[in-house]
Amino acid sequence: MAPESLLVVGVGDIHGRFHRVESWLDALAEARGRAVDLVLAVGDVEAFRHADDHRRKAAKRAMPAEFAEYADGVRTMKRPLYFIAGNNEDFEALHDSPEGLQLAPNVHYLGRAGLKVLNGLRVGYLSGIHAPRFYEQPLKRPRSLDTAKQAGYFRAPEVEKVATLRDVDLMLVHEWPRGLPQRAREQGEPPPGRTLPSYWIGNPLTRRLVETIHPKWVMCGHSHKAFAVALGGHGGRTPTRVACLDQAARPDESVFWMEFQGREVVCAGWGISGEVSWRAGQPWGLGALPRPSEPGPVEAGY
């Protein structure tokens, strides 16, 4: 008997926009004609109860803060959503649970670093971004805006923990691995309407983790830009396919879905139309991205 298939959806930086993400998942489920089994968010979820919470960065207080309805039981997330931390979170609420916790029914924080088995898939994860000044420093309790900011940086023991992982189906990181634009250039010119970001985007430690662990897939956020590139694949090894997600302002490039058969992805696509943009056996790169859409209004950024 063939293994049961799974529909797994990655979502870019939510920044408090839980309502629209739920509506997008409804639309995708209808388009694919099946239920969404698992939702994975790549950080900057911002599960705050109030938009003007003093712990949020000033630039973020114009963003919605809809999580209170889920925490208070007014609304319930329809599908299990698991998220890593970015560099904009309610770190005071997350601090005492570095191995993860459930914040509301069907809303789960994975933790700062490690591996969880979700629906039979081995999911590795590293929360936060790289700040060299704080990399070797101990993590402080986030009692102020300054220490809350520092909580959004990953530390050396967390990177070392992730580096020991093997046989990883999917890895979640917030900040891009360094060198993705260079790798994309090696694989060919960007398609019409696409430009390569700065070669300095991302961090080298996450890149080193990907090269050490060799996960089958990586999803990341933070830079609010969709990107697709394959890393590795030397010596007969299957390459790691990296999907970078835009922030959750519009669904076309901030939603990336994968249909698994067992532990292997058989097809994948962007947005909520249900249209397949990649199938197993095809090359993975910028050509797998959706056609660039006309720019629309986007809320304040990071």
Rank of each mutant, 00 (worst) to 15 (best):
G235M: 02
A65I: 08
H19F: 15
F256E: 01
E211V: 03
G16A: 12
P191M: 05
L25A: 07
P290K: 06
H50N: 12
F18E: 07
L81G: 04
S5N: 13
S198M: 01
A85S: 13
A151C: 14
F134T: 14
A228E: 09
A51D: 03
V123N: 01
F48N: 02
E275K: 15
S293D: 00
V9S: 10
E46A: 13
V265F: 09
P177Y: 05
V74R: 14
G232R: 11
L115D: 00
E69M: 07
A85C: 11
G233P: 09
A65E: 04
P3Y: 07
G271S: 07
S254L: 06
V265G: 08
G16M: 12
A248R: 09
D53F: 05
G124Y: 05
V298S: 12
S144W: 01
M171G: 02
L145C: 08
E158M: 08
M63T: 00
G236K: 11
W257F: 07
L289F: 10
A59S: 13
A29R: 09
M63Q: 09
I213N: 02
E264P: 00
V107Y: 14
A2R: 14
M258C: 15
K149M: 08
A35E: 15
E69P: 00
V265S: 08
Q247P: 00
R263Y: 04
G281I: 09
F67T: 01
G111S: 05
A163Y: 02
Y70D: 02
T76I: 13
S127A: 12
G281K: 07
S97H: 15
G233S: 06
R155E: 03
G221S: 10
A85F: 06
P64S: 07
A230Y: 03
W217I: 10
H95W: 15
A113F: 06
E4R: 15
L209N: 02
G152T: 05
L205F: 10
I14M: 14
P295D: 06
E92R: 12
A31R: 13
F18P: 06
L231I: 11
F67I: 00
G73C: 07
S5R: 15
W24T: 01
I201G: 04
L25I: 15
S277W: 04
W284P: 02
P64L: 04
R133M: 10
W24G: 02
L121M: 08
R208M: 13
R56A: 07
G100Y: 05
V11E: 06
P297R: 09
H214R: 15
D72K: 01
I84K: 04
V8M: 06
A85L: 13
